[in-house]
Design a binder for these strands. Structure first.
Lengths: 101, 101
DNA sequence: GAGGATGTTCGACGATTGTCGAACAAGGGT
DNA sequence: ACCCTTGTTCGACAATCGTCGAACATCCTC
């Protein structure tokens, strides 16, 4: 079963925004924005693993993440360079906790 | 009945993104980004006026627009300065038709 | 005041979404 | 071989969402 990771340019903007427009997924993206790879199981945001798997699928199919399988684990990472190139400023605007100014 | 235009900083990021994550609303925002005020009726995007009214309400309550009543018409404008200050890069990232590079 | 234009609100509807537990699949360790 | 760990998939469910027509409210102009 292929990971189904689309070309980011082929994903409608609304789909990218919709993927970001969820609290759990935004927490995942924030964690991923720290850099590097994260195992799926490291995301503990008060949802079941079925729900977590669902959210990761949404992010992947929106072109926001890439997933690599290794053993029983799966490692997820943010497609930050592509996102910054296609939507400059989007991630920064969305990821900052709260602009104080 | 007050227009119900919240302080943008009080609106959850996910609500802002959700407001943007719809095709009709994105078209409205693109039109508004041209600048100035637009009467509600000028948005002709293939939906009924009930639906259009609904979308404008979503945008307004997400803190994206301001509405001014004048006669039987209502004039809408984008809260661009506030958006750019709180979410720098968001609008630009989302509004550009398609980054060619 | 009657009539028309511009919007909003009110159900109603079908579709999508977020959530879960349970079942399933695949690897690793003992 | 067995079991445990890690994730995915499969219904199912309640909630939300986008859409519409119809009714309503407001204002403007005869």
């Amino acid at each position: 079963m292929e990971p189904h990771e689309p070309d980011l340019a082929a994903v409608p903007v609304t789909a990218v925004l919709a993927a970001l427009a969820d609290d759990v997924r935004l927490q995942i993206v924030r964690a991923l924005a720290e850099g590097g790879e994260h195992a799926c199981g490291t995301f503990e945001f008060g949802v079941s693993k079925a729900t977590r798997s669902h959210h990761l699928k949404v992010l992947r199919e929106a072109g926001l993440t890439r997933t690599r399988a290794a053993g029983t684990s799966r490692y997820v990472r943010l497609r930050r360079d592509e996102l910054d190139r296609l939507y400059p400023g989007l991630l920064d605007a969305v990821l900052t906790p709260r602009p104080p100014a």
